[in-house]
Design a protein around this nucleic acid. Structure first.
Lengths: 235, 235
DNA sequence: ACCTGAACACCGTTCAAGT
DNA sequence: ACCTGAACACCGTTCAAGT
């Protein structure tokens, strides 16, 4: 076939195929050629819809964030004044922040390799801004003044994305069987003693059990709670 | 030339070329072919030293971490008992933790695109373990019991890596001029209203000035301090 | 505007062969 | 053990051409 049947796709259709690919074969499979062929198109046809692969990736991020649904704002009373709201507002704000963090983590870990998406550029799309606005409202409801709320909102995003980064780094490693030898070479490369086993690090050794749980929802929640402890003045 | 002059390179020499490439041309330029040609080798020759590109990347991570130099342990007194150490020990532990976090950030942001390195696999090399051990010691010196110290050490690493992730995502975007149009397409892709400008998000708008400082050392320090507030029971 | 086909300049990795 | 050269199966992106 030469020119083509004039399909006129939706961006949503393209992103669906991209997410199918991400879930089925991982981040590396989300290629211009791969998505195009999943759509029944030539790679070059995709450039009609997105000017670059990076633009496609950003579209995927926004698509994910659209499903975040920050929920009812409801913090309008506290948003106006920088004073100390009632402890009920503090508790409500904190609950909402934890819920948002958990939901964000859920969305991003649901699709393996989603971190690659986030690193495609800054989080400045409309849905990312909506999230930011909700975080600001919640921190102000919890008693922070505006500037501190901004810093706190950023800190929380940092923590969530950091968690995803570390989790996905380990998840990727597990799916690659050649990893043990990779590690050996990395060790040798630094000139470190090859017999640096756990015994050299007594605390790390005694802590193996809890380290094994580092990627759990419980550890994530614990970390977010401690961060919120530090950000909000309560507890 | 056919077979070759039998060079016998050091892993350190290879890593040096890799870091030169990383600094000069970014993470994408750190390719097997690129490193090999910088060494005057054929790409395949590199596979004698590293079994895969990922192994090379892990070697680079260890090489970076080797320059971390956690410093004198000095917390041997507090490491033995889970009780409450003197406030001097708490302050010293906390100071050391902040210094480590700052140093780690400095190392990773010094080389643009270093996050790609970290995502090459879990941080389980000898130097990564040495860092972990030092973090454990410091948190115990600050008064945490062993299991909480393990969780806290992980939380701190999460925060540092998350900061790097967000910073490098924005740094990469700045170096690409085609970004504005990318964003427009991403916006359209979600079906979001195109006129979602800052005015729709009043809090985000009023907070632009501090948002512009999100990648600063000051903001990083502020976030780490708040996290330490929550992790260590003081203040 | 949407699409094809050919092409350009790259990738990581494998394999047989040389010293 | 260390290296080459050829090859395989991919990339993102550009460009002229068709409808």
């Amino acid at each position: 076939m030469r020119p083509g049947p004039r399909r006129s796709l939706t961006h949503a259709e393209i992103l669906d195929v991209a997410f199918d690919l991400l879930e089925a074969k991982g981040f590396a499979a989300v290629s211009v050629r791969g998505v195009a062929s999943g759509l029944g198109l030539t790679p070059t046809a995709l450039y009609t819809y997105y000017p670059s692969k990076n633009a496609l990736l950003r579209g995927m991020v926004e698509h994910l964030l659209a499903r975040l649904d920050p929920g009812e704002t409801g913090a309008t009373d506290a948003a106006g004044e920088a004073g100390a709201p009632g402890s009920a507002g503090v508790a409500a704000g904190r609950t909402r922040l934890l819920a948002l963090a958990l939901r964000l983590r859920e969305l991003l870990t649901g699709h393996a390799g989603a971190l690659g998406l986030i690193m495609s550029g800054p989080l400045d799309g409309p849905n990312a801004m909506r999230l930011n606005e909700t975080l600001l409202e919640s921190f102000m409801a919890a008693g922070l003044e505006l500037d501190d709320a901004a810093r706190a909102a950023y800190a929380l995003q940092v923590y969530v994305l950091g968690s995803i980064a570390l989790e996905s780094a380990e998840a990727d490693a597990e799916s690659e069987p050649a990893d043990a030898s990779d590690r050996a070479f990395a060790t040798e490369a630094t000139g470190a003693t090859l017999w640096t086993d756990l015994a050299t690090f007594p605390l790390s050794e005694r802590t193996e059990a809890v380290a094994a749980q580092h990627n759990s929802t419980a550890q994530f929640t614990w970390g977010v709670q401690r961060l919120l402890d530090g950000l909000i003045g309560v507890r």
